[in-house]
Design a protein around this nucleic acid. Sequence first.
RNA 1: GCCGGGGUGGCGGAAUAGGCAGACGCACGGGACUUAAAAUCCCGGGAGGGCGACCUCGUGGGGGUUCGAUUCCCCCCCCCGGCACCA
Length: 818
Amino acid sequence: MRYDFEKIEEKWQKAWKDKDTFKARSEGDKKKFYCLEMFPYPSGRIHMGHVRNYSIGDVIVRFKQMKGFNVLHPMGWDALGLPAENAAIKNKSHPEDWTKSNISYMKEQLKRMGFGYDWEREVATCDPDYYKWNQYIFIKMYERGLVYKKRSEVNWCPSCKTVLANEQVVDGGCWRCDSEVDLKKLEQWFLKITDYADELLASHGDLEKWPGKVLSMQKNWIGKSKGAEVTFRVDGMDREIEIFTTRLDTIFGSTFFAMSVKHPLVKELIADNPEKDKIEKFIKEVEQDSRNNREQAEKRGIFTGKYAVNPFNGEKIPIWLANFVLIEYGSGAIMSVPAHDDRDFEFAKKYNIPIRRVIVKDPKEELPEEVEEVFHDPGYLINSGDYSGLTTEVAVKEMGEVLKEKELGKLTTQFRLRDWGISRQRYWGTPIPMVYCDKCGVVPEKFENLPVKLPREIDFTPGGGSPLEKSDSFKKATCPKCGGEGARETDTMDTFFDSSWYFFRYSGISDSKPFDSEESKAWMPVDLYIGGVEHAILHLIYSRFFTKVFRDLKWTNISEPFPHLLTQGMVTLGGSAMSKSKGNIVDPDELIKKYGADTVRIFILFAAPPEKGLEWSDKGVEGANRFLQRIWNLFHSNIEIIRGDFSLDKEEKSTKDTYIKLNQTIKKVTEDIELSFHLNTAIAAMMEFFNKLSGSIDLIKKENPGLLVYSIEIFLKLLSPFAPHFANELWSEMGKTEILENEGWPIPDEDYLVEKSVNIMIQINGKIRDKISASVDETEENLKKAALDSEKIKQYIEGKEIVKVIFIKNRMLSFVIK
RNA sequence: GCCGGGGUGGCGGAAUAGGCAGACGCACGGGACUUAAAAUCCCGGGAGGGCGACCUCGUGGGGGUUCGAUUCCCCCCCCCGGCACCA
């Protein structure tokens, strides 16, 4: 008979709800465990990635709960953002309605999967009670000088009609719709994440439980490089240009100077150049090029007619405009050292600029005059005046001191990381709580006026500016400072703002603060954070930034929100991530309907270890179902014994191997969940045990029925985090009254973990030639005797000399012969 | 180019303080049950050779260390992810 998963799953979901099984409690002196999976965007329905992510989390949570932890396992919705607006425009509805109906549908789906959450802590970022605190945090950051407004060139997505953060531009395209990104000059609000760049990188040392991959991605993103700022005077002009270099030691080799066409001084430099028109044409071309051409273009440049003066040797070097110098990095100008930099070398070759070698590996080495190859490594300085002969390292130090002394620059550090532009010209986001007053300037909204609510009735079709611009009632505001008439900021926040602190909110929901610091202190940090590797940079770096700001605001005493990160691999179909736009979605609903939640959970967890990518295939889902069904069948065909009153006989010879296997399985499953999260091998171990049990069922029934009862008990406990409804059903059929979630996690019987006899392999010259069954801990002496008695071994050893014997207890005996 | 992760049967994947490669599952083949099928149960399987006991080869390729290497060292190839005229 097939088990009726529908009935069973509904029954136990109701039981968990009625018993508040997953309500976070702070009881006794139990340790806390805060397990969090990245909250979903309510796009409509959950997808396989969610199923995988939340199944992993749920196993850990149920395991920890049985292990005796106070567990916090909340869930919520990352509910603001563009898709809601786009969908609403398409269906002529409202983003709020679309979002809320999606939330309620998806919530049912999560419940249907049997995931154990504390729904009392649910948050939805579109709720004014939530985004109120976005606004509050924004103002607090403003007060700390971490928020500023700047007119700047920003990434503009012409299709989404909004600004994108640097992090949201992928290969020159919009991260969401892949349209080519334009540059646009706009007044934008920025968060000074760069103030924390150094710390964000330095505290990587505290994140030893993060995947190396994520750390390296963040490291790349922050892009710290040590070097020096040096000021070059422009010859014949009262102007100076600052450069950044990581190779101050090569400064005597600088034979030209290069700057970005967008450098603010360019206009002035070429003002009196007779070939000004030609240069301006060049500038236009380069600007055009950098927009259209995502690939690395051929190096091009043009001489400005001016010279820069090298502060170290007074040498005048030509100032060029070059397409390979980026305005976004450093100061947008560089000293070029062709002998020691590939780009400079290529450029110098093309434009016949002298190439001067200033660093060598060995000062005694005779080198040709002509520099044929760029030398990158550190070494000894030559052709460098008083510095010649010094090592790279010493030269940088000494030159740095000279710079400082003469006020010509300093040793410094550059970051690739830019400040985070958070202004968005769209409707469905948190209004930025600022008021413009003619008298007082820009003023943050008063606390008592928060939240600044999104008006519901509004034309939110995107245009050039923010849709909120069109609402007079929204725009109209009273200046919080002087009480005069003011105008509200109409841009909304990047939704990454919302998700940068939601985990704090869960840890201490409060009406009067973003989160209750006291309660939060008891729960934070998140002990295990599980989510897709696609959030490795954006979300995770922003969340770390917010946490450090909260610490500095004394709202928390932790510096890192997620000491332990588990990044699950993406679920792909046809090689790419499932997404609506690509139309390669697999809807879990169908599988759940056909097989039930327990089967789906086992199946997705068994398919691969969590951190690996998973190319979707439903081959094998039958196998997961079959596994449960086999347990069901064995259970029910032996129900009398299982319900009976039998005691376990550990020492019964005929079944001792099963008892040992059971204990080994407890150990393996526990370690797989706790240490490596390799839930696939945990399931495999359970299957292995079940195969063993069902293979010797007749013997066990006859000789040791107590072992069957005991095995089933333990087995159901081990299975319960994976297939919780199923396990609970059988558990209750055994006559147990407590639910499994409130039972303790089994502990292996240490005296029964090792088999009493083992196979010893006998090797000759490294090749296995025989196997001998022996009791555990058999001595080398005895095994050697037995091996030498073996016919198989004899034929190899006959007439040869035994040079050496290697023995590893309980494993092998190896003869080296000649 | 730099950084990170990989490469194991037909497939998903096991196993590395060096010691029986391929656990577990899928798919496949054979058998039992059945009038038949489905379901279920049992058996089989890396490749090649041999009737067989067995033998040889085999964890991307090449070299090395070792009695013994999927595991350690050196060189190379390929795949995936990230960053990238970053000065």
